[in-house]
Amino acid sequence: MTRQRELALDPQPSMATRREWLDDGALLLRGHAGAVAVDMVTEIKRIARLSPFRRMATPGGGMMSVAMTCCGARGWCSDGQGYRYVAADPQTGQPWPPMPATWRQLAIHAARAAGYDGFEPDSCLINGYRPGARMGLHQDRDERSDAPVVSVSFGLPAIFQWGGLRRTDPLRRIPLLHGDVVVWGGVSRYVFHGIAPIRAGTHAVTGPCRYNLTFRRTL
């Protein structure tokens, strides 16, 4: 791989990236990952051949509308036993695919732009949204670390529901577009958030779906 190619896969936050502070400790970097979208979506499909997308059961017996896979040292799972991170994919019995180094660097740079130096993600959750799929309001409390979360969006637009530290706090509806990156941590680390149902459509890079990658430190 040439140095030019490496740089194309490893964007640094720049003054050209439009920054929107959602809250204390929560930053939206508009279009920050757009330049590497094609390469990252290609990698998503490669990872999914090793650890296929699947819809997981919830502890209450329901079924998530979002399909999910993971990469990195540990992956997130949900079933009748609860929510947790595990070192091996329960569906294949094999370790989760390694996290691409360029993905890790993108997450580190985005976290740094939001003021979180030293972020070292060890897990990436990859969600696949088809039209109608949604993510209910929740807090990210399954990690043992209080490190920030870095979220990258590709494909169909989504409405990011951003609340407060109580489930009943008012929600803001924030459009997330192809290439947008959101980082939240600090006092905003446990804010309730979710994704409204995805509207039908087609995107040039992802087709009729949205991909969302969330980078986390689980230990």
Rank of each mutant, 00 (worst) to 15 (best):
T2P: 03
C209E: 00
A196T: 00
S151H: 14
G118W: 04
R84Q: 13
P98C: 06
R210Y: 08
P52T: 10
R19M: 07
E43H: 00
W96H: 02
R130M: 10
R217C: 11
Y211W: 00
V183P: 05
P197E: 03
R189K: 11
G80P: 02
M40E: 05
E20D: 14
G207M: 09
A147M: 06
G164N: 02
G201C: 12
F192M: 08
G136H: 00
L106N: 15
T58W: 07
R216G: 11
A101N: 00
T102I: 10
F53T: 03
D146T: 07
A87F: 04
S78K: 11
V149R: 04
G82S: 15
V181I: 14
D122Y: 03
S14Q: 13
Q91I: 15
L28M: 05
R84N: 06
A33S: 08
A67G: 09
V187R: 05
F160P: 10
A67L: 01
R104N: 12
F154G: 10
C209K: 12
P11D: 15
L28H: 10
F215N: 02
G163M: 04
V152A: 13
L125S: 04
R134Q: 09
D24S: 01
S14F: 09
L106V: 15
M56N: 02
R30Q: 07
L9Q: 11
L219E: 02
R46T: 09
C77R: 12
E6K: 14
G80W: 11
D140W: 03
G201P: 06
D24A: 12
A88W: 03
V152Y: 03
V182A: 15
C71M: 12
F192C: 08
H178D: 13
Q161N: 07
T92H: 10
T102A: 14
R55H: 05
D180A: 07
L22E: 09
R49E: 15
V41Y: 12
E6Y: 12
W96R: 12
A57C: 01
T202Y: 02
G82P: 05
C71R: 13
S51A: 14
R167Y: 05
A88H: 07
H109G: 04
G179A: 05
P208G: 13
P97S: 01
C124M: 14
G163Q: 01
D79H: 06
T168S: 09
D79Y: 14
N212C: 03
R19I: 03
P90V: 05
V66R: 08
M15L: 15
R112N: 00
P90L: 11
A57S: 09
V66K: 02
P170W: 07
Q4N: 05
I44R: 02
V38E: 06
T206V: 08
Q105I: 10
C70H: 04
C209I: 06
A204V: 15
R134D: 01
P208H: 01
G163N: 09
D23P: 00
E20L: 14
T17H: 13
A204Q: 15
P175R: 11
A26D: 06
Y83M: 08
P59T: 15
W103Y: 15
G115N: 06
Y211Q: 04
L28A: 04
F192K: 00
R216E: 10
D180C: 04
M99I: 12
R144Q: 06
M15Y: 08
A114G: 12
Q161W: 06
